[in-house]
Design a protein around this nucleic acid. Structure first.
Length: 931
DNA sequence: TATCTGGAACCAAGC
DNA sequence: CCGCTTGGTTCCAGA
C-alpha cells in the first residue's frame, strides 16, 4: 500500500531521449484514445444530472442536495458527473460507489469512519448536514427536534455521522460563509428542502433559519463581510464564551489553550478530561447554551436556494431519510462547533458585522447554487467586481434565483478534476510559498498567502475566449497522500483591505468555505490571489464532529484548490481544477521541519556516486539525508544515509552524494525515497528518487531547468515536488503535481497564453483529464512559482488539438492519473506491470502504506471520479510500483519514464503519528487498506 | 488604531 | 508518578 511508485511519464518526455518521448507519446496517445470516452464524459457534465439525484438521494444525504446529487449522479448519471468529475460508466465508477454512494445512498452516510481520510463526498455531505444540524441545534433556535447530545455525542457511535470526513466544516467556515452571505445552507441539508426556504436574503432570516447562519459568528475572521445583522445575531445568540472554555478538545488537541501569558485566565482546558465532565462542559454549555439565532435547520426554512435545490428532493422518502440522518447529525453539530470556536466566531462576527458583503448573503446557501446562477451571476459579479466589489452587493439576486442549472451538477469539492479540458487550461502561474502560518480564530488574520517571490499566487485560465467573466473558486484542500479533498482543519479566509486588489466573496459549500474570485476577460482571465488567507480551526473542534475522521494533529499541510466552471453552449459545464503546491501552515513545522523544495536530479544509475543538490528550508549542519526503499506494504527494504557535504550546508541548500543502490544490477528502474532529517521527529517529506539500471541512459531531470537557477553547483535543480510527495494523493493522477513535475510532464500548457513562466502548479496535472492537457501540459514546475519556470522541459507533448472532448489521456498527466488511480485502488494492480506502459502509471502509491493510513485508499480509488473514468486503463497500468515491475517494454517510456514514488508519505512522522493514533483510537479500519 | 507578524508561553498528550 | 518531548493554541509585542 504504502509506496506506490509512479512512473513519471513526465520524465520520459521531458528527459527521455527524443525517441523515448515519441514512444511515450504514442503510448499515451493510444491510451488517450481509450480514455477519451471517459474523459469526455468526465468533462462535461450536464446539468441534467440532477435527475440522477433521486438515486443519490436515496441516500439520506439530503443535505447536500446537490452534492449528493453530484455524487449520486456519478453513479447513475454518468455523463454528468463524468464531466470531469467522474464518469459514470467506468469501472471507475466503482470507485465511487464504494464510497460515496452507496448505491443506495444511504449507506454512505452510515459510516462514520475511522480512518483518517476518507472523506467522501457523500459522507461529507452527510456530515455536513449533520453538522449543520448540529449547529442549528446548538444555536438553538428552532431546534426543536434536536436535542443536543452533549459532548458525548461527539463520538457517540450512535450518532452516525454520515460522512466520512467532513471536510472542513469548520464552524467557522460556516459562519463565515454566512457572513459572506452566501451561505450554504446548501449544505445544510437539513435545512434544505423541507425547511422553509428563507426568502429573505441574508438577513436575519438567514440567521435564524440557517444553522450556518450562526456561522457568522463562527468565522468572523473569514468573513468580514458579514452583515451587521448577523454579527449582532451572533453575538447575542452566542454569548461570548469565555475563551478558556473550549469545546472539548479531543485528546489530541494539545494544550492549547494556555495561551501565553495571560492565558492562564483562560482556564483553557482545565476541564477535566476525565470523563464526562469534560465532555459536558464544554459542549453542552456552550453549545446548548448558545442559542443559535438560527433556527433549527429543519424547522426553519432556509434560503431560497434551498428551495431551488429542494425541488429535486421533494421526495418524501428522501426527506424522511434525511431527517433521520439529520437528527443524528444535529446532535453532532453542536459538537461540530466547538464552543470556543463559536465563541470566537461570535466575537468576530460581531466585529465583523460591519463588513457585509453585499449580496452574498442572499445568495444561497450553497455555493453551488451560486454556480447555478452562473450566468446571471457572472454578470452580476462582473458588475460588482468592476464596481467595487466590496461595496456593492455583488450578486444580489442571482444567487437566490433559480439557476440555469442546478448546482448539483457541479462537482463536489472532493472530486478530482482535471486542470485542462479541451481548450481550457486552468493554471497556477505563481505558486504560493511553501509555508504560511495559518491563524486561529482567536488571532487576528495573518494575512494572505504569499508567493515565494513576495507577491501573491496567480491563477490564470487559458483558452477561454468568451467575454463573460467567470468565477474562480478557491478552497483549502488537503495535502496528504490521499485524494485531494477539502481540509477539515483549515478554511480559506477572505482578506480584505487596502492591500488587497482582488475582489472576492465567500460561499459555503458543504462546510467548506469557498472564496469566489472574479476571472475577467479584461484581465486575461487571470487573478492575483491576494485576498486569501488560511484559518486554522481547532483540532478539538473538528475532531469532535461525528463525521470527522481526519485527525488534526500534525495534519498541517494544505493546498490551495482553484476551480472554474465554464458553461458550454451545449449546456454542459466544464469544471477545471488546479491545485497548488503544499503549504505548511503550522508555525512549528514551518520553523523546524526541513523542507526539500528542489532537487537537482531525480534519478541516477544504481551505482550512485553523483552529487545531488537539494534546495529547501531549515537545513542544519546536522541534517542527514536518508535514502529509503519501501515495499508496498510499507516495510523498509533498504535504508541508507547519504553523505552530506558538510561544507556546503546552508539553511537552504544541501549537497549530497547519492549512495549506491543496494543492488547495482537492477534491470529496471527502482524508485526509492529520500528525506532530510534534522532529528528524531523532524524529517522532511519524502522525496522521490529513481535508481536506473546501469545501462539505462540517465534521465536528466532537467526538465525543470528553470530551477537551475537555483542550482548553485551547476546542478540543474529539479523542482521537487516535495509537496507532492506526501500529500499528493497518489490516486489522482491529476492531483499529483509532482508527478507531472517530476515526470516533467507538462501540465497543460495554456494554450493561448504563452506558457506561464512558471507552470508551477502541479495541480493542473493532476486533474487533467483532458487530452488536451496533454499536449498542453507544461512541465510542472516545482512548486515554487517563484522560481522562474524554466523552459519547459517537455514541450507540449502533443497537441491535441484539444478537443475538449477528446481529451485524453495521452498526456502524461493523464497517464499518471490513471496509474494513480489504480494504484490506490488496488495496490495489486500496481504490481501488474504496466501493461501498456508505465507511463500512464504514476502509480502513486499511497504512501500511507500502513493500512491505517490508507483508509482513504479504499475510498481513494473510488473517490475520484476521474479515476473511474480512467481506471480501466489505468488499472492495467497501474503497475508501477515495484521497480522490478516496470517493464522495460515500456522501454520507450520506460527509459524516459522515471518511476516516481508517490509522495505518499507525508512526513513519515506524520503518517506514523496518524497511523498510530488511528490504530489506537480506532479499532476498525482495515477495511480499506488493501494491504 | 488596526492589522500583520514573529516569537514564545502555556499546556496537555505521549513516551 | 515524574520528567521530557511534541505540538497545538493563545498571547504578547514590535513593525
Amino acid at each position: 500500500m504504502q509506496d506506490t511508485f509512479c512512473l513519471s511519464v513526465t520524465s520520459k518526455f521531458s528527459f527521455g531521449a527524443a525517441t523515448g518521448k515519441e514512444r511515450g507519446l504514442q503510448l499515451l496517445t493510444s491510451l488517450a484514445a481509450d480514455m477519451k470516452s471517459a474523459e469526455e464524459d468526465a468533462y462535461s457534465y450536464t446539468p441534467n444530472v440532477s435527475l440522477s439525484l433521486p438515486l443519490g438521494m436515496g441516500s439520506p444525504c439530503l443535505a447536500t442536495q446537490y452534492h449528493t446529487l453530484q455524487s449520486s449522479p456519478v453513479i447513475s448519471v454518468s455523463s454528468c458527473h463524468q464531466t470531469g468529475y467522474s464518469s459514470d460508466n467506468h469501472a471507475a465508477s466503482g470507485y465511487y460507489l464504494p464510497h460515496s454512494l452507496r448505491p443506495n445512498g444511504a449507506p454512505a452516510l452510515e459510516s462514520p469512519r475511522i480512518e483518517i481520510t476518507a472523506y467522501s463526498q457523500y459522507p461529507e455531505d452527510e456530515v455536513e448536514e449533520s453538522s449543520s444540524e448540529d449547529h442549528f441545534v446548538k444555536r438553538g433556535v428552532n431546534i426543536v427536534t434536536l436535542t443536543l447530545p452533549n459532548a458525548e455525542g461527539y463520538r457517540d457511535p450512535s450518532c452516525l455521522s454520515p460522512a466520512s470526513s467532513i471536510s472542513s466544516r469548520s464552524c467557522n467556515s460556516e459562519a463565515s460563509s454566512y457572513e459572506s452571505g452566501f451561505y450554504n445552507y446548501d449544505n445544510s441539508p437539513q435545512n434544505s428542502p423541507w425547511q422553509s426556504p428563507c426568502v429573505s436574503p441574508r438577513g436575519s432570516s438567514m440567521l435564524l433559519s440557517c444553522p450556518h447562519a450562526s456561522g457568522p459568528a463562527g468565522s468572523p475572521h473569514n468573513s468580514p463581510s458579514t452583515s451587521p445583522q448577523i454579527g449582532a445575531m451572533a453575538e447575542e445568540g452566542w454569548p461570548a464564551q469565555p475563551r478558556g472554555s473550549r469545546p472539548n478538545s479531543p485528546s489530541y488537541s494539545g494544550g492549547g489553550g494556555g495561551g501565553g501569558g495571560g492565558g492562564g485566565s483562560m482556564g483553557k482546558r482545565k476541564y477535566s478530561f476525565n470523563g464526562t465532565s469534560y465532555h459536558q462542559t464544554p459542549c453542552s454549555p456552550n453549545q446548548s447554551a448558545t442559542p443559535s439565532p438560527h433556527g433549527s435547520p429543519r424547522v426553519s426554512v432556509t434560503d431560497d436556494n434551498w428551495l431551488a435545490n429542494t425541488n429535486q428532493y421533494t421526495n418524501s422518502a428522501i426527506v424522511a431519510a434525511i431527517n433521520a440522518l439529520t437528527t443524528d447529525g444535529v446532535v453532532d453539530m453542536g459538537e461540530g462547533i466547538p464552543v470556543k470556536t463559536r465563541k470566537t466566531m461570535l466575537d468576530h462576527s460581531a466585529s465583523m458585522s460591519l463588513k457585509v458583503e453585499p449580496g452574498g448573503e442572499e445568495l444561497g446557501p450553497d455555493g453551488e447554487l451560486c454556480h447555478e446562477d452562473y450566468p446571471s451571476r457572472l454578470a452580476l459579479k462582473k458588475e460588482s467586481y468592476c464596481g467595487g466589489f466590496l461595496d456593492v452587493p455583488q450578486h444580489p439576486y442571482s444567487w437566490s434565483k433559480p439557476k440555469p442549472y442546478l448546482s448539483p451538477s457541479l462537482p463536489a469539492l472532493d472530486w478530482q478534476l482535471p486542470s485542462c479540458s479541451g481548450p481550457y487550461n486552468l493554471q497556477i502561474e505563481v505558486q504560493p510559498k511553501s509555508h504560511h502560518r495559518a491563524h486561529y480564530e482567536t488571532e487576528g488574520s495573518r494575512g494572505a498567502v504569499k508567493a515565494l517571490s513576495g507577491g501573491h499566487p496567480v491563477v490564470q485560465l487559458y483558452g477561454y475566449m468568451e467575454s463573460e467573466p467567470l468565477t474562480l473558486q478557491l478552497f483549502i484542500g488537503t495535502a496528504d497522500d490521499r485524494l485531494l479533498r477539502p481540509h477539515a482543519f483549515y478554511q480559506v479566509h477572505r482578506i480584505t483591505g487596502k492591500t488587497v486588489s482582488t475582489a472576492s466573496h465567500e460561499v459555503m459549500q458543504s462546510n467548506t468555505k469557498i472564496l469566489e474570485i472574479p476571472l475577467l476577460p479584461e484581465n486575461n482571465m487571470r487573478a492575483i490571489i491576494d485576498c486569501a488567507g488560511i484559518l486554522k480551526l481547532r483540532n478539538s473542534d473538528i475532531e469532535l464532529r461525528k463525521g470527522e475522521t481526519d485527525i488534526g494533529r500534525k495534519n498541517t499541510r494544505v493546498r490551495l484548490v482553484f476551480r472554474v466552471h465554464i458553461n458550454q453552449p451545449n449546456g454542459r459545464t466544464v469544471s477545471l481544477q488546479a491545485t497548488s503546491n503544499p503549504i505548511e501552515c503550522s508555525q512549528r513545522s514551518a520553523q523546524e521541519l526541513p523542507l526539500v523544495e528542489k532537487q537537482s536530479m531525480d534519478s541516477c544509475p544504481a551505482t550512485g556516486g553523483k552529487m545531488i543538490l537539494l534546495n529547501g528550508l531549515n537545513f542544519l549542519p546536522e541534517s542527514k539525508v536518508v535514502f529509503v526503499e519501501k515495499a508496498q506494504d510499507g516495510h523498509h527494504l533498504w535504508e541508507t544515509e547519504a553523505k552530506v557535504d558538510k561544507d556546503s550546508i546552508k539553511s537552504n541548500a544541501l549537497v549530497v552524494e547519492i549512495p549506491p543502490y543496494r543492488n547495482q544490477r537492477i534491470s529496471s528502474s527502482v524508485q526509492v525515497n529520500f528525506y532530510v532529517c534534522n532529528g528524531k521527529r523532524k524529517r522532511s517529506q519524502s522525496q522521490r528518487f529513481t535508481y536506473l539500471p546501469p545501462n539505462v541512459p540517465i534521465i536528466k531531470t532537467e526538465p525543470h531547468d528553470e530551477y537551475d537557477s537555483l542550482g548553485t553547483v551547476g546542478l540543474s535543480m529539479h523542482s521537487t515536488p516535495y509537496y507532492s510527495q506526501p500529500r499528493l494523493t497518489p490516486i489522482m493522477p491529476v492531483a499529483d503535481p509532482e508527478a507531472c513535475l517530476v515526470g516533467g510532464y507538462p501540465s497543460c500548457p495554456p494554450r493561448h497564453a504563452a506558457m506561464p513562466s512558471s507552470p508551477p502548479s502541479s495541480s493542473p496535472t493532476l486533474h487533467d483529464l483532458s487530452p488536451v492537457a496533454f499536449s498542453k501540459c507544461l512541465p510542472n514546475s516545482p512548486t515554487h512559482a517563484a522560481a522562474p519556470p524554466g523552459p519547459m522541459v517537455a514541450p507540449p507533448i502533443q497537441d491535441n488539438p484539444g478537443h475538449p472532448n477528446l481529451a485524453h489521456p495521452s498526456s502524461p498527466d493523464n497517464n499518471s492519473s490513471l496509474g494513480l488511480l489504480h494504484s490506490q485502488g488496488s495496490p495489486n494492480h500496481l504490481n501488474s506491470p504496466g501493461r501498456h506502459n508505465y507511463h500512464p502509471i504514476y502509480t502513486n502509491s499511497s504512501p500511507s502504506s500502513s493500512p491505517a493510513s490508507h483508509p482513504s485508499t479504499p475510498v481513494g480509488p473510488a473517490e475520484s471520479p476521474f479515476v473511474q473514468a480512467y481506471s480501466p486503463v489505468g488499472s492495467a497500468q497501474a503497475g508501477g510500483r515495484s521497480p522490478s515491475l516496470l517493464p522495460e517494454d515500456a522501454s520507450p517510456p520506460s527509459m524516459a519514464i522515471t518511476v516516481k514514488q508517490e509522495p505518499q508519505e507525508l512526513d513519515q512522522m506524520y503518517l506514523d503519528d496518524v497511523n498510530e493514533i488511528i490504530r489506537n483510537d480506532l479499532s476498525s479500519i482495515s477495511v480499506h487498506t488493501h494491504a
